[in-house]
Design a protein around this nucleic acid. Structure first.
Lengths: 262, 262
DNA sequence: TATACATAACATGTATACATCTAATATAAG
DNA sequence: CTTATATTAGATGTATACATGTTATGTATA
């Protein structure tokens, strides 16, 4: 065995240095729950968005550590990602808090959402098939039933499905993700406010108008109706000051308070 | 000293349990560079966006560790945040890579950007002051000079300033952040492509049209001109297939290739 | 030569100890 | 009693060792 030197020789395995993740480690559904970091992130995010954790609440890494039965490392990684989403605020050597809602971001979020969804419905009006329009009508009926039953949860659920389906018709899933991101703070805010009288009925009517625009293949009309619809959210925002001030970052420039009158 | 028991008594200091970060640890410029994690994050992000690190490149945590002279912890936290931005891809127990550009995201990004900037310029047309419009004209001249000098860098710099200033006029800084985010993948893509002949001249003309719309206070016209301008980016995207395929995620649904004809 | 399998290097994931800074409390001074 | 200062609990920031999985490589086999 003159080749034993082979074993002694340092076997360097230079990993592919400039290769895409091509290997594609996972093929299908391999990642059921994912890493501990992912589990923590998902749960925390859910609790923050659902307002189970109210804005401004102190997040204690050690508490989460024992709560999830993992070490601080995955907890911190989850927090880093949520901080990137502005869902938590990290104050360097002091504390980590559930992200407060920046009041200044709300009018902007409404405008951005409006612009994006208007573009989506414009596209939808151009490409929607008959069955897709019928589905929209079904969702509208579902929403109306929820309104009659005064079931707010069901109403908002149907509302979500309605908007989701329009963007699905448009065929730009990435933009839908963007819309969801923009909506996060709006949705958190809305969970804090009391429902307005008669709003559900108005929403149903506005949705009907949007469907009409799509059905006529009139992109401009559909977009205009969508914009009108989403701009109704504006009025909600004038009741800021009353509610729990500690839930918000009061960075609102008052001169900007009235977003776009038309 | 009958009160020595005081010292022995466990002094629990229950930190504010439901308080906003109110204390505001830092007041002004306290965070010059920030934590090690921040330094790594900033540098990595810059290198990725500037394409100094090409898409698909293997990122080795250990290499970064010795490169920055810090431990893996801050390196990983930086990577987590960049992963949230889709600027890096982490393959669980395999490797971390510089984020490739998802081809499917490019048409969507153009549409989203167009919708957002159209909304911005619409607002700008309503509120722009004379001096703000004059500044826009100055930026346009600056851009034209760069075009004449065939200075691409200066041209793109002036281009950026032009769009930035419009959103500044509109007064929605948060939406500008959103636009920047949407633009990231587009900008990375554009750095990979060769300039098109005559494009700079056309851009200058389109910008002039946008200014005209603003100057007339004609929101619809300004928005239309902005949309036309940004939709020109569309034609660039049909040269995907040629360039380095390893830089991209080829998830493009071909039937969607033609975004919005009008 | 081509294929299947075993092995180990090397990547990321996690746990834990320590460093550092903040801020609440105790203490002293006015 | 009010204010200023010192102290220290407790939070996040960082370093490091270990766990776990992936994947290149070596080896045996057909």
């Amino acid at each position: 065995m003159e080749d034993t030197s082979n074993k002694a020789r340092a076997r360097r395995r230079p990993r592919a240095q400039n290769a895409p993740p091509a290997g594609e480690a996972m093929f299908l559904g391999a990642n059921k729950k994912g890493s501990a970091s992912e589990v923590v992130r998902r749960k925390l995010r859910e609790d923050i968005i659902s307002l189970k954790l109210v804005p401004g609440t102190l997040i204690n890494e050690n508490r989460l550590t024992e709560q999830f039965g993992v070490s601080r490392t995955p907890v911190r990684e989850a927090i880093q990602r949520l901080a990137e989403e502005k869902l938590v605020e990290v104050v360097p050597k002091s504390g980590t808090y559930v992200g407060r809602i920046p009041l200044s971001s709300l009018p902007e979020a409404i405008i951005a959402r409006s612009a994006l969804e208007a573009a989506m419905v414009r596209r939808a009006a151009q490409v929607a098939t008959g069955s897709q329009i019928t589905t929209l009508k079904a969702l509208l009926e579902q929403q109306q039933e929820a309104q009659i039953a005064s079931d707010r949860n069901a109403f908002h659920y149907a509302d979500d499905l309605f908007h989701t389906h329009i963007t699905r018709i448009a065929g730009y899933p990435g933009i839908w993700e963007l819309i969801l991101q923009v909506r996060v703070q709006i949705d958190r805010y809305r969970r804090l406010t009391l429902p307005q009288e008669g709003r559900m009925q108005r929403v149903v009517e506005e949705h009907a108008a949007i469907i009409a625009g799509i059905e006529q293949g009139n992109a401009d009309l559909a977009a205009q109706n969508m914009t009108n619809h989403l701009m109704q959210l504006r009025i909600d925002l004038e009741t800021f000051h009353d509610l729990r001030p500690e839930y918000f970052i009061h960075d609102l420039d008052l001169k900007n308070l009235d977003p776009t009158p038309n």
